[in-house]
Amino acid sequence: MTEPANPTLWQGFAAVVKRDLLLAYKRPGDMLNPLFFFAMVSTLFPLAIGPAGDQLKLLGPGVVWVAALLSVLLSLNSMYLSDLEDGSLDQLILSPQPLPLIALGKTVAHWLVSGFPLVLVSPLIAITYQMPTETIGVMVVTLTLGTISLSLLGSVGAALTVGLSRGNALLSLLVLPLAMPVLIFGARTVALAAADDAVSAGVYFLAAYCMLALSFAPFAAAAALKISNE
């Protein structure tokens, strides 16, 4: 009998992403919850503040970014929870695939079901804040980079708090300080775009932050998962 070869790193990564996307597809509620939250918070603001155009233009970038940040935080807690509960986490840790790769796969799937839909919906939200078209483009770019960073940073926090009861509050405390640069630069860049100022510096910073998170977060999340699963 010839033994089949070990799956490649890419096959392992793809299998994890595919499984988590399939799980999200079978439970659409979990996926839509953060998206509804994002849409609700950012559409309620104009209703509460009033339809005055100048005011909305001023508030728009900040509101959209805060809503995006909170909605990503909302979805983080469940990232590793079910894996811990049904014993899948043991199997993932005991697989011959490197754990950082598995953590990265889970993070990518998390972004695809929470961050990406949010980016897709954001232009609609931006219209309610009377944002000009060029600003919407900048907002989509910054939100894309920002939500990827948030998913990566959040995966570390989620891995650290996965075994804890009421880990949600702790998770927010852990992730928020690291997420502050993303919020500040994201919202400011969109505001600058609205005022017709140069935006490239902000976009570069967000891209750099995203790359930094991409290179560290999977390893930190893997180490945290091992500790949480003991």
């Binding site: 089949p4 392992g12 793809a14 595919k18 199997q91």
Partner: peptide, 13 residues
């Protein structure tokens, strides 16, 4: 689907 997922993680016949 569960068993197929395993084949991405480890050598599976």
């Amino acid at each position: 689907e569960n068993l197929r997922f395993e084949s991405g993680l480890r050598s599976t016949s």
